[in-house]
């Protein structure tokens, strides 16, 4: 039981971080960013290059992941999403654009970083072992703590900074925010950059545990969408709860159902379908959008 709890907390914290960026972008721009997973992968590869290849301190490599992804996110928003959103009222346009960007990023990742699985040296050695009832490597504990701290910092930024207030206003009512003097174009770009930066941050954190390869993007996006659906699209607290719930479902399923084969995700998907049939807006979402 202790191991299941620990695995659940660890998985939940990393999943919540992945979902946060996705839901932020959706809240601000009503864009389903299918390229979110690819952004996560790029974050992992940037940290791999700086920390694993060039020997730059891990924290600095992590900062480089954040900065790189923030720049990529800002450019994507300014030159791709913003013109499409202005020029087309149809939601499919942004969805197709996001899918196209995902393919493009996949191709670029293959070209720049290659096809191989990559990993970096452990940032902390050693394993916490409580009588074989609870085993957790120290680097996972550290990453889990960093992920939780990052979530807290993000919530603080959204709640107490001028940028955060502007972003929340934008998410609540774009026109009202504009009428109140919020520079919608600027804050849309900042919001998208922030969402991409979160993907880069979690990619950089997790490359120390899971490594990174070019095929991770699509699967990461799907999991992120599941968390957002559970928690409620466009709601920050919903993304966090969605991540935690998915993390615990996975940890419990893998521990309890292992003798029946790989049915954990089958049950998670069935549960998700039933849940959405009963509450289509998710846990925290509002029925009216």
């Amino acid at each position: 039981m202790e191991q299941i709890l620990a695995n659940g907390i660890y998985l939940g914290s990393q999943y919540a971080m992945i979902a946060l960026g996705l839901t932020l972008i959706f809240a601000l721009m009503n864009v389903l960013n299918f390229a979110h997973g690819q952004m996560y992968v790029i974050g992992g590869f940037v940290t791999y290059t700086f920390y694993g290849q060039w020997g730059v301190p891990f924290v600095l490599a992590l900062v480089m992941s954040c900065v790189t992804l923030a720049i990529i996110g800002a450019l994507i928003e300014k030159f791709l999403f913003a013109p499409v959103i202005k020029g087309s009222a149809r939601e499919e346009s942004t969805m197709l654009l996001a899918a196209g960007i995902a393919f493009l990023l996949d191709a670029l990742i293959l070209l720049i970083f290659g096809e191989k699985q990559r990993g970096v040296p452990k940032i902390v050695d050693g394993v916490f072992n409580y009588d074989f009832r609870l085993i957790m490597p120290y680097d996972r504990i550290l990453i889990c703590v960093l992920a939780i701290l990052s979530i807290v910092a993000f919530i603080g930024l959204m709640q107490y900074s001028k940028t955060g207030r502007a972003l929340r206003a934008l998410a609540q009512d774009r026109i009202a925010a504009q009428l109140m003097g919020v520079n919608v174009d600027r804050y849309s770009m900042i919001g998208f950059a922030l969402g991409a930066m979160l993907a880069g941050l979690v990619g950089g954190l997790l490359v120390t545990i899971t490594g990174v390869n070019l095929g991770m993007g699509g699967a990461t996006s799907i999991k992120a969408f599941m968390m957002v659906m559970i928690g409620g699209a466009g709601v920050i607290s919903g993304a966090i709860w969605g991540g935690i719930i998915l993390g615990f479902m996975e940890a419990i399923g893998l521990a309890v159902l292992s003798q029946y084969g790989d049915i954990t995700y089958l049950l998670i998907f069935v549960s998700l379908m039933i849940f959405l049939a009963i509450r289509p807006q998710g846990l925290m979402g509002k029925p009216w959008g």
């Binding site: 998985l11 996972r140 095929g215 699509g218 699967a219 029946y260 084969g261 790989d262």
Partner: peptide, 19 residues
């Protein structure tokens, strides 16, 4: 011989614990 994992699994600690 019954434990399997999703192809896209990135964290194997929960998967391997029962093995």
């Amino acid at each position: 011989d019954t434990v399997t994992y999703q192809v896209d699994t990135t964290d194997f600690t929960p998967v391997l614990t029962p093995v």
